[in-house]
């Protein structure tokens, strides 16, 4: 590892235009993926105060169901219009998220809302363990390699570098998801009620808000967002056991940096982590491993509640 003055090659890279926009583009693409992964986590935490360790499993379930169904679509009708596979991706995610979210909320979580926050972390940890093996039982351990939707869109040259159009579309998808979340929270009646629940659960109950319904809805939306992230990622990776566990810590980092429970925070957190990481990869690959935890520790050291987190009034 080099300490001290940067070697000439790296100096040159710093001033190189190609590297500069590569950092920007890669950072944006990675950030949008991070946001997709983290959005569901922050929504659930914001409303329900549950730090959902099983979020990664929802991601995995989304990825697996999308990969297997799209794979089946291509292998069973070779002549079919390949563009339908995108509808299958999204449809799969919605269906998987709805079903899994509903079953878990109604079957388990709703009996536990009175327990404290930390115990809920452990409940979701148990869920993570169970879902990890359940996914394995349903889908097997063979990796699913469903590349068609990824390679179908081709690539575009931006300057000297080629980018996969699917990755660029992912940026669009995350803007849509973020926009929708923002719109629902800020511009609809449901959103207003939700914000009331976020602000003070007890008062909201006293005002006649059906908090149980809100919780059920939020959990299902959060699960679906997790599954959607998985489904949209599935075509660009090889879906194999353990992918869920890998994204949990990432999603946590993004959400903690941005401030737990804040959509704006998740956006900023994702951009911060995404761009820093991309900078590290291009300029100092040896520190890449520490980037995420470094950013998280630094932000927490300066702003313990995260960038957009609310400081909670201390109650006596």
């Amino acid at each position: 590892m080099n300490v001290g003055a940067l070697p000439p090659a790296r100096m040159r890279r710093l001033t190189d235009m190609t590297t500069f926009y590569a950092i920007l583009m890669d950072g944006m693409i990675y950030a949008s993926w991070l946001f997709l992964v983290a959005a569901g986590l922050t929504v659930i935490y914001g409303v329900m105060r549950i730090l959902n360790m099983a979020h990664g499993s929802f991601y995995a379930i989304g990825a697996y169901s999308a990969a297997s169904l799209v794979g089946w679509y291509f292998s069973s009708n070779g002549e079919a219009n390949p563009y339908w596979s995108y509808a299958i991706l999204v449809g799969c995610a919605l269906l998987a998220g709805l079903v899994v979210g509903f079953v878990i909320e109604q079957g388990l979580l709703r009996f536990m809302y009175k327990r404290n926050e930390l115990l809920m972390v452990i409940v979701t940890y148990a869920l993570l363990l169970i879902l990890e093996d359940a996914t394995k039982l349903v889908f097997g351990v063979d990796p699913y390699f469903t590349y068609q939707p990824y390679s179908l869109l081709g690539r575009s040259m931006i300057g000297e570098l080629a980018f996969a159009n699917y990755d660029l579309a992912l940026v669009g998808a995350s803007v849509v998801v973020g926009g929708l979340c923002w719109f629902v929270l800020n511009r609809t009646h449901t959103g207003k009620v939700l914000r009331a629940v976020i602000h003070d659960r007890e008062i909201a109950v006293a005002m006649g808000v059906n908090v149980r319904l809100m919780f059920a809805g939020t959990f299902i939306v959060g699960t679906t967002l997790g599954a959607l992230a998985g489904a949209l990622t599935a075509p660009s990776i090889s879906v194999s056991p353990g992918i869920g566990v890998e994204v949990i810590v990432l999603a946590f980092a993004v959400v903690v940096v941005g401030g737990l429970g804040s959509i704006e925070g998740a956006v900023v957190g994702a951009l911060l982590v995404g761009l820093t990481r991309s900078m590290a990869v291009h300029l100092a690959p040896e520190i890449e491993l520490f980037v995420i935890y470094g950013v998280m520790s630094l932000v927490l050291a300066v702003r313990p509640q995260g960038l957009f987190g609310r400081t909670v009034a201390r109650k006596i």
Binding site: Y30, T233, E246, V281
Partner: peptide
């Protein structure tokens, strides 16, 4: 990691 966008660019 699964996502290699930045590495591929580099």
């Amino acid at each position: 990691q699964g996502q290699y966008g930045a590495e591929i660019s580099a």
